[in-house]
Amino acid sequence: MRAAFSAFLAVATAVALAFLVLPVVAIFTRVPPGDLLHALGQDVTRDALLVSLKTSAIAHAAVLLFGTPAAWVIARKRFPGRGLVLALVELPLVLPPAVAGIALLATFGRVGLLGNELDALGIQIPFTQAAVVLAVAFVESPFYVRGAIATFEAIDGTLLDAARTLGATPARVFARVALPLAAGGLGAASALALARGLGEFGATIIFAGSLQGVTQTLPLAIYAQFEADFDTALAISALFIVIGALLLVALKLYPWFRFVSIFRSRFAPST
């Protein structure tokens, strides 16, 4: 009985790993590395790479700038409706990206919620690079904010109180105590959100379209190329795998949690 269970565990693990690894291996074996590099040099790929880098950078900066204070407030303040806010933050996580695209159109489109106001200001968002930025930010922000809330919640509140009694204003407590202590968790959440943003597809294609050099990001380029030139699609996919692997390695190698582990290793609290 015990041996049977061990065998079952081994087989299940092998199947799961093979299923996850095989497609990744396939991308690198299907086409010789030389051809992959050649495909990356093509205009379509270079344009898409530039659009992706630019829009992701802007979107990610905005997510960090607005998401960090928002996460701090949600994590440390007790206010009515906090549970609802927490749920709303996570809602985009469970939405299909296509729904996110439609929702953004319904907000910023010509006939959308803010359509008249934007029209009056002469601003048109759908099918521009700004639309890509909005789509990417919308889809990636829950990944960052959720991780940031958990990180801020884990900070020992007495440290924040101690800083106050030492004369620190709330802004200084945030900058000198909360941010350094949360750096590890914020970095991890930020990397995860960045990876998710770079891979954004559904919301972008609906809200921003797929115009080469303007709104065509790397995932959209894969979709555009997979019928026209499968090798290019493969090359971009390979590039993603490399980026993803680098992000994961960076996360594992960086000693994110050293403050926390040192602090927790000391005495257990008494009352």
């Binding site: 020992d156 007495t158 440290l159 101690a162 350094p180 202590l181 040192i262 602090f263 008494s270």
Partner: peptide
Amino acid sequence: RFVGYVFQEYALFPH
């Protein structure tokens, strides 16, 4: 308030 507060478990900043 200029209060010197020695917290339980001391609450030293670990970083």
